[in-house]
Design a protein around this nucleic acid. Structure first.
Length: 271
DNA sequence: ACGAGATCCTGTCAGC
DNA sequence: TGCTGACAGGATCTCG
């Protein structure tokens, strides 16, 4: 559920709060959240100072002194909070980095799909998942965006969700941007004109920027680094609204499975 | 190259 | 009240 805007919100909140703080100890509360042996993970983190927090795709990345990088994928229900010791955080804490000054950075995850990975100096770029990521949608020009889809017969929504094609988009922002661009999610990418793709990029970027400005979307689990919900869920026009009237024309919104995901769309507006 | 389906995981909610 | 099953979905895998 945390997609690009949610991860961006979390990281923007974390960055000033974790910069310059030294990891005094590493508490692995649930080993399933690690993608490597615990000893290796701990060795790479313990004693290191966090230099910065930033985002790539849906990954939260922490640059460490000693040139290592901590990568955290939140998947559906993961969260990162700093110096927050609520009941919720304690209940679902999977990893706790205790700082030398007594605060902590905690990775929480209800469904336990998320993971943490410590990468030694220079190995981030050779990590296959990282290396396979497509471009950031907010950096793309219309021409570069259109080039991603030329000759692709797959459904446009499948490609928007494919992180190797374009990074950071999940079900929410795919559905919302396709609705705003009036494109049916099952349209084959190769059937879209350059003009329609340009329009899609415009709406995609607008939706992502607005969602970041509103601190992301909270369906049920998502919280920012301070434990606060986002507000963009109040702007949803189609996501999660099947059976309700289309905000543009009043037609009953429908849902169908596309690329294994529930897709909600207006059968009249989206062609 | 693409799609469909299974997999992982657990809280929530509808239905009986 | 309490149980059961459906559902949520990012990434990865297998199979067709």
């Amino acid at each position: 559920m945390p997609e690009l805007p949610e991860v961006e919100t979390i990281v923007r909140g974390l960055d000033p709060a974790v910069r310059g703080r030294r990891v005094a100890s590493v508490e692995v509360l649930d080993p399933i959240c690690l993608r490597q042996p615990r000893a290796e993970f701990t060795r790479l983190l313990a004693g290191q100072t966090i230099l910065a927090a930033h985002r790539r795709a849906k990954l939260a990345l922490f640059d460490l002194s000693g040139q290592a990088t901590l990568a955290v994928h939140l998947k559906m229900t993961g969260g990162l909070t700093v110096d927050l010791d609520s009941d919720e955080v304690r209940r679902f804490a999977r990893l706790r980095l205790n700082f030398a000054d007594a605060g902590s950075l905690v990775f929480t995850d209800v469904r336990r799909f998320g993971y943490c990975l410590a990468l030694p100096a220079g190995s981030l770029e050779s990590w296959p998942f990282f290396a396979s990521l497509g471009p950031e949608p907010l950096d793309l020009s219309p021409d570069a965006f259109a080039a991603l889809f030329t000759g692709r017969a797959a459904r446009i929504k499948s490609l928007l969700l494919d992180q190797t094609v374009i990074a950071g988009i999940g079900n929410i922002y795919a559905d919302e941007s396709l609705f705003r661009a009036r494109i049916h999610p099952q349209t084959r990418a190769s059937d879209l004109s350059a003009a329609r793709l340009k329009r899609l990029l415009g709406h995609l970027q607008q939706v992502l920027r607005q969602a970041i400005a509103e601190n992301g979307s909270s369906i049920r689990d998502y919280r920012d680094s301070g434990g606060n919900p986002g507000a963009f869920q109040n702007r949803f026009q189609v996501y999660g609204r099947a059976g309700q009237p289309c905000p543009a024309c009043g037609t009953c919104l429908r849902s169908a499975t596309v690329a294994g995901r529930t897709s909600t769309f207006c059968p009249k507006c989206q062609k």
